[in-house]
Design a protein around this nucleic acid. Sequence first.
DNA 1: CAGTGTGAACCTTTTCACAGCA
DNA 2: TGCTGTGAAAAGGTTCACACTG
Lengths: 238, 238
Amino acid sequence: MRPRRSHSSRGDRSIPEATVDRLPVYLRALVDLAEAGTITVRSEGLAEAAGVNSAKVRKDLSHLGSYGTRGKGYDVAYLIHQVRRELGLTQHWSIAIAGVGNLGQALSNYQGFAERGFRVAALVDVDDAKVGERVAGMVVHHLDDLPELVREHGIAIGVLATPQAAAQEVADRMVRAGIRSILNFASAVISVPPGVSVRKVDLATELQILAFYEQRKATLAELKRRGSAVADVATSRS
Amino acid sequence: MRPRRSHSSRGDRSIPEATVDRLPVYLRALVDLAEAGTITVRSEGLAEAAGVNSAKVRKDLSHLGSYGTRGKGYDVAYLIHQVRRELGLTQHWSIAIAGVGNLGQALSNYQGFAERGFRVAALVDVDDAKVGERVAGMVVHHLDDLPELVREHGIAIGVLATPQAAAQEVADRMVRAGIRSILNFASAVISVPPGVSVRKVDLATELQILAFYEQRKATLAELKRRGSAVADVATSRS
DNA sequence: CAGTGTGAACCTTTTCACAGCA
DNA sequence: TGCTGTGAAAAGGTTCACACTG
């Protein structure tokens, strides 16, 4: 159910999924370190900045190659370059946002995208009241124009910020327009053909997960109060 | 680094983390099914609606108890009740949002929270230009008032929607105000004392991960074009 | 000799496959 | 008979601990 290994002539190009998920975190931490004037960082220092442990950092980075120096650590600037290259951030990416509601507008205005090499190249919606309006300095286009916009701006990634009910339909149209990577903010599970990547971010889901652990903490506290011997809980996550 | 098992007198109260992460997805799917008039669902049907496979559904649900009927499936309404109970959603939760910028405002207006039992009870910021303003029908308070707001509204969960630079400071103040669950939208890694749960949602990170796989698809396509025998890739995620 | 890079051990999660029940 | 619930196997991820090197 997950990417199979390819076979390349030299080295092993397949990086574990868990590692890929952490590379952006390392990158952020490294950029912060660089801005603070740090030249070299040890796995332990990077680990602290990224909120993981040092063994994980070393193992993760070893998948990219041998970019550290034994006895010294990693050169921050060089490692930034390597991580960026690995993530495919040496090029700029154009994205389209579908659904110009609350969330869609907030995302359109979000500076963090541009700062990290993602250009919001198109906004689309189906609501005639919104089409033609300006949001974040851009004209909102009709969803019908998506194929043309994708071609024109070389859009590779689509952001789904529509209501749940519209999500699958809009996803289908994104795929038909040639988009093969979708970031789904709608609470619906969408299905896409093989070869198309989807990541789902569901805000309410995150709160529900926190609620679960919060509830459990309350239950444990209750038990403790009643004198049962209960193991301690550490619940920092992600 | 993860919750340790407790020991309770009957049954095993510890549900795997991976399962907890999926329960909200099942819940959403179940509610959709119920609204569509479905009375009973098989693990395979629920699996499809949730975007996973049926073995996972059965294993996950088995952690909650034996709520299915062999030969039949699961009663949708009953299962909804059980999942909601397990997640701690039989009670309402009050949340506070810190940082009333783009994202903070979008979150304040987000209907999905209320629909799933989360009440935005307080908005706080440090910007005097924002304090006193009305957002989503609520008055924005100063961050200084957080402890009082937490007490007054019984706030259990804090949502961090501040700029990166302020994130750690605001998180510290949330913890001091008595909040023990934080949903972090800032791109910074925050550290909290044991017993406080944090989940991080980083929008740019998600795009970077998609960029990685998108780049890899391009590379594979390139190799294929050159005639190398390359295994096929299926990259649907989460 | 400090700190990387990495086999090996360990733990978690997923998948398989089927016994057992309605 | 048709499904759930679950041991057992497989895969994936994390941590340990140390050989190795700049």
